[in-house]
Amino acid sequence: MEGQEEIQQPHLVLANKLFLLSHPDVQDIEKVRLREEVLAFVKADDMAPLYETLVSESVLEMDQDCLNSMHAKIEEELKKLDEKIADAEENLGESEVREAHLAKSLFFIRIGDKESALEQLKVTESKTVAVGQKMDLVFYTLQLGFFYMDFDLISKSIDKAKSLFEEGGDWERKNRLKVYEGLYYMSTRNFKQAASLFLDSISTFTTYELFTYDTFIFYTVLTSIITLDRVSLKQKVVDAPEILTVIGKIPHLSEFLNSLYDCQYKSFFTAFAGLTEQIKLDRYLHPHFRYYMREVRSVVYSQFLESYKSVTIEAMAKAFGVTVEFIDLELSRFIAAGKLHCKIDKVAGVLETNRPDAKNALYQATIKQGDFLLNRIQKLSRVIDL
């Protein structure tokens, strides 16, 4: 992308600060600092539209003089940009006209005027011929989408990018789109698809405008743990050299991954407890916090029970470093939800696994599909007879 640097897009940094400001688990003294940083950011970029929104939501206090000053600067800058566009259209070539329109698009993005930015990006696209440059405009739109968490806009932009790639496009942009798409899937709770895209992008990651490489590895490991089988996890994550070089920098993540694979369940729960705060305070993962917690526990309980036909509840509680009562309550919930294939013998204090027979399940599915097919054939024969 034009002007691409290996730093996070400033507005996504701001979006994270705004998220933390609204988070109930962030301490008040920390929110005071965050509020000051947000206000400084808004003033520095003359983000009048966002400032008005934040005032209406009681995030910031109204300063009319400050708002008037921002509006005056915006009007002055827009006048300059429009003059530049007019000059380019009268005296310069098509590429200069496009650059002038792009500058206006980026200005609207900078000040937080979403609707004007999207409208101006469309105008800029109409002046753009090269597929690569059109893709860059889609990336700007995607960044807007992630700032506002507008998943409809993100989904449409990803579809648009894929259709552009049918016309051509370089591998670098295609690889970057995978990370954007993976983040979209993770943010909409499709962890399996997200893990697949993230794993494909490990060796080609250049999407620093979204997040750092450390954060990318953090997301990759978290999504992989609940979606990959044990063999794939070992091959693609545990032994991946790109992950090994970074994972030690992220608190608790190495212990979280390796203790699960090595069946060190007590260490796993300790590392998991350490990671919960990071997951809870992550802007993209926070809405799925409870779901993710359940899925991870389901994976680890299933892995433990895979080794046994029957095991005492006490032995399982000891392996996980928790009480018998806790394990009993946990397993009851997962069994009732159909997440675990076992039953609890409360009298004997024993867990008995009853894994579904794969052959029997396949047989039942075949019978069901056969019945469905016969019904369709009978309906068709009646139509033909008529």
Rank of each mutant, 00 (worst) to 15 (best):
E167L: 13
A86K: 09
E30P: 06
Q133F: 00
A319I: 05
P24C: 04
M135L: 12
L275P: 10
F147D: 07
E2T: 03
S302L: 14
K280Q: 05
Y292H: 05
D328P: 00
K73G: 03
A161Q: 04
P10F: 08
F372S: 12
Q378M: 11
E30M: 07
L54T: 04
S69M: 05
E37L: 11
E94T: 06
L373P: 00
I226A: 12
L153K: 10
W171H: 12
E76W: 04
R382M: 13
K80M: 00
V347W: 02
A336L: 09
E36T: 11
A44S: 13
G248K: 11
E2A: 12
Q64T: 13
M186D: 07
A161P: 03
R376Q: 12
Q9I: 07
F320I: 06
L177Y: 08
L14A: 06
S259P: 02
S105R: 01
T227R: 09
L183D: 06
R382Q: 15
E57D: 11
L121D: 06
S126W: 10
F19C: 06
K43E: 10
F320L: 10
I29E: 11
A361H: 06
S69L: 10
N91L: 02
F19A: 03
Q369R: 14
E255V: 14
L50N: 04
R355T: 14
V300W: 02
V32M: 01
S381T: 13
E209S: 10
F146L: 06
L340E: 01
I243F: 08
L233W: 12
V97L: 01
N68Y: 05
L142F: 03
E314L: 13
V59Q: 00
R382Y: 02
M135T: 05
L285M: 13
L39Q: 07
E30I: 11
E61K: 13
I384P: 01
F216A: 05
N16Y: 04
H11R: 13
L12F: 04
V42I: 15
G370R: 02
I335A: 09
T245P: 00
D28A: 14
V131M: 09
A72V: 05
A317C: 07
V13A: 04
F151I: 05
V129A: 13
C342R: 06
P287C: 09
E242C: 03
S157I: 09
F147V: 08
V42Y: 00
R294P: 08
A15C: 04
M135N: 03
E119N: 09
Q193D: 09
S298V: 14
L121P: 05
D28M: 11
T312V: 00
V179P: 08
G349Y: 10
G132D: 14
K249E: 12
Y184K: 07
M1V: 12
L18Y: 02
R297M: 15
V38L: 01
P356S: 11
A48N: 02
D63W: 09
L67W: 02
V322P: 03
M186Y: 08
L210W: 02
Y363M: 10
L21N: 07
S224V: 13
S69V: 04
V59A: 04
T204M: 05
D282M: 03
N16V: 01
A15K: 02
P10N: 08
A100Q: 01
D357F: 15
A117T: 10
V324I: 11
Y292L: 15
T206S: 15
I225D: 02
I313G: 06
Y291E: 12
T220N: 12
L373Q: 11
T141V: 07
L14C: 09
L244G: 01
T204Y: 07
